[in-house]
Design a protein around this nucleic acid. Structure first.
Lengths: 329, 329
DNA sequence: GTGAAAGCGCTAACAC
DNA sequence: GTGTTAGCGCTTTCAC
């Protein structure tokens, strides 16, 4: 655990010179640079990032705050973020808010205290997510996947209304009449907009919307299972399902299986988010796929500009989802 | 961005007193504590963790280094780690080594410089993973999922030999004769031991092992697909597959689907690692399930003891896997 | 119980 | 090109 002082002593130079060699900030004579190099090697010296951060008032850490670390959608987004961050010399911390605004706020406090260089955030709520703690410290924030009304920041997401519209229009084109929609929390823009897109498609096709066929669940497997079970138990059950994310699609499949309902004969199904297993399931699952990795890359690039000092107007970047028609609908 | 000095000034006390109030280290009179509290609130003061770490020579950050952030097995383990870490006041950084020993070593350097409090590591290689950079700094390390020969550290894993043995014995009990094994890199203990378990079961049952039916892949979906495709193309193809992880199981399913092979009629299949979709697939997939969350919890608890100063002999904690028989085999 | 002062390890002015 | 010095914001003796 030797310090820059130890290296300086051994190389018979000043600490400042060691620092200059290590950081390559200004020219140092070859002779001294060589002595420093040898001393560093001999002592197995490792610069202390903490001291460095305190002095320079900067860190090389980004945080990604997501609502569910076990949702593969976010994992893939994080992968895109990481690749960009790594390239630019930043390391990435992952925080899991669990859809909980309080847990989220707690993390913001920690990140502010750690003087994190930048934050990429999937907000737990449109209205109640409060990022003041970060903004007060001048920490740039980029929102992903969901919009935020409580603060004006760069936002990267997919066109949820359009994706849901396409999915529903596809079900209509198959001749389905009673189309159910299982969406997520309306306190998130993803939940609200995917429902809106579904309704828009129905209205556009002149199909009368039936509020009985709309269910608000929680983006989780269990929520999807319960919603689908309730819908199947209706006197006049749906002949098609649009399900607004991957985990709820799994729950819906489970409910359909338990009820012995045949897909797509009795009930057609279109999900949101693509997963590897969905293409090989029997039947394979029709989905609206999101460009997850690209979403992460776009958000990270935006953050990179912010931490580099850009102060242009916050932007909204909207990526296009893609309908992948398979056997289930 | 006010400092402890600003708070002290406003509260008309010394910085030391502010520190004492904030950390509750020793008694401070109610009067002064109240003044400090008001000043903190008024200035929206947030202690600088970096300065604190420099002074105390400690951090509250753990790192988890895994080989594939997109593998749900690890995600679930991480969730277990996080819950324990959070409870104990540590935050968790996630690093993705991508099965690459060099990338891994690079991370160790960064973590050493950051004076990370502890590291939980799924080593990319039994022999070539070098954690000296961490140990030199006195940073405790706990290995998970895979053993390491290059250093003696606490290790938490499941009984891979036993899991593979059970899976294979199950296939034998179904009357299968030509049992293929698709395992992972032999430079990992998981790859080697799951193959060993498979062989042990075959030997035990007096079934002659056929090296043609053994394939070493890379724990990825594409590797599983290719290995399974090759096996199906043999003159005398297998009538059963034991596949040594979740992603390769997916690849194998894909290959079987492409080849039009019926499961379990023509070919039986047992995978390693359980995933939610496997229970609802058609047919549902028989697997050896690992207690992933518990594995993370156990590793984190061990690390907690280490960072708290325990210096007892490194231990190996072996958890039991569980065969879950479903329709595929 | 409280304050003054030193110092964690580094870098950035400032001299020379 | 190189060394000296100061100081980032905090905690921890050490006095009182």
């Amino acid at each position: 655990m030797s310090s820059i002082q130890d290296v300086a002593r051994l190389a018979r130079v000043s600490p400042a010179t060691v620092s200059r060699v290590l950081n390559g900030t200004v020219g140092v004579s070859e002779e001294l640079a060589k002595r420093v190099g040898q001393a560093v090697a001999e002592l197995e010296y490792r610069p202390n990032h903490i001291a460095r951060s305190l002095r320079t008032r900067t860190t090389v850490t980004w945080a990604v705050v997501i609502t569910d670390i076990q949702n593969p959608f976010y994992t893939s987004v994080v992968r895109g973020i990481e690749d960009v961050a790594r390239e630019a010399g930043y390391s990435v911390v992952l925080c899991n808010s669990d859809e909980d605004v309080d847990k989220e706020a707690e993390y913001f406090g920690v990140l502010a205290s750690a003087r994190t260089a930048g934050v990429i955030l999937a907000p737990a709520s449109v209205t109640d997510t409060r990022i003041d703690a970060l903004l007060d410290q001048g920490i740039p924030v980029v929102a992903i996947d969901r919009r935020m009304e409580s603060a004006l920041v760069d936002t990267v997401l997919v066109d949820n209304v359009e994706g849901a519209r396409q999915a529903t229009a596809h079900l209509i084109s198959l001749g389905r009449q009673r189309i159910a929609c299982i969406t997520g929390l309306l306190s998130t823009t993803t939940g609200a907009e995917r429902l809106a897109g579904c309704r828009a498609a129905l209205a556009n096709a002149g199909v009368s919307a039936n509020e009985q066929l709309v269910r608000i669940a929680d983006f989780k497997e269990s929520g999807g299972y319960q919603a689908a079970s309730e819908l199947l138990a209706l006197a006049d059950p749906p002949d098609a399902f649009f399900v607004a994310n991957n985990l709820m699609t799994l729950g819906t499949l489970e409910a359909l299986g338990d009820a012995g309902v045949a897909i797509p004969e009795q009930v057609a199904l279109v999900g949101f988010d693509d997963e590897p297993w969905m293409a090989f399931a029997t039947p394979s699952i029709t989905v609206v796929a999101q460009p997850t990795y690209e979403l992460g890359v776009a958000a990270a690039k935006r953050l990179l500009e912010r931490v580099s000092g850009s102060d242009e107007e916050p932007q909204e970047i909207v990526l296009k989802p893609e309908l992948r028609v398979r056997e289930s609908g």
